[in-house]
């Protein structure tokens, strides 16, 4: 359908206003919101993600595509809510205790939102108890933990251990990331997934749920 292609294309171009207009136009034409989401918005974001991995597009282009996604989602959200569909997986995201790095985490948050995930960002220097509170309050599908320091990555393990102690480990998938973190470390501490960049993180989050 032409309008869906136009949405996908406008999203890839980062043209937020046009994405919003075209999403509205599609609704007026009677296209279902879930169809607009999957065959328009998410299709465009998927193409951006693939091109990013292939070094054909770069971080600023991913960010403006994610912003355009928001404009589209804002048009769809009220209608999706009315239909009672729970459309997106929810992620609680934060940087662990003792670590103040925020750029990587923010980038992951933006791309996740741009991939249709609902993101609750609990900030930087987050104590494990605060993560537990956030899980009880927001009931996310995924907990994403960022750490940029070799001295704080051990806190990712602390959070996982606390989840086990609180009996919450089965309720949530745990993803970890950050410069010193490796696939091996992810296995060592019993996390469910590790990603090297924001786009991979968003893809992994969608895969885990």
């Amino acid at each position: 359908m032409e309008v869906l292609n136009e949405i996908s294309q406008a999203l890839q171009n980062g043209d937020a206003d046009l994405v919003g207009e075209k999403a509205q136009e599609a609704l007026n034409l009677g296209v279902s919101p879930s169809n607009i989401l999957s065959d328009g918005l998410l299709k465009g974001m998927g193409i951006i993600g693939a091109k990013f991995k292939n070094n054909e597009v770069f971080v600023p282009e991913v960010l403006i595509a994610a912003r355009a996604m928001h404009f589209g989602l804002n048009v769809l959200k009220p209608i999706l809510a009315n239909t009672g569909v729970k459309p997106f997986a929810k992620v609680v995201l934060g940087t662990v205790k003792g670590d103040l790095h925020d750029i990587g985490k923010n980038l992951v948050g933006m791309v996740m939102m741009g991939s249709g995930l609902e993101v609750v960002d609990v900030g930087i220097d987050v104590h494990e108890d605060k993560f537990i509170e956030a899980i009880k309050e927001h009931k996310p599908d995924i907990l994403a933990l960022s750490s940029l320091l070799s001295t704080t990555m051990v806190e990712q393990k602390t959070v996982i251990d606390t989840l086990i102690k609180e009996g919450l480990r089965d309720q949530v998938k745990v993803m970890i990331g950050g410069a010193p973190v490796t696939e091996q470390y992810c296995k060592d501490i019993g996390a469910d997934g590790y990603a090297t960049d924001a786009v991979s993180a968003a893809e992994m989050a969608r895969k885990l749920v």
């Binding site: 320091l149 070799s150 051990v154 010193p180 490796t182």
Partner: peptide
């Protein structure tokens, strides 16, 4: 040698 988490 920051990646040597266990024996830095």
């Amino acid at each position: 040698c920051g990646t040597q988490v266990y024996n830095e």
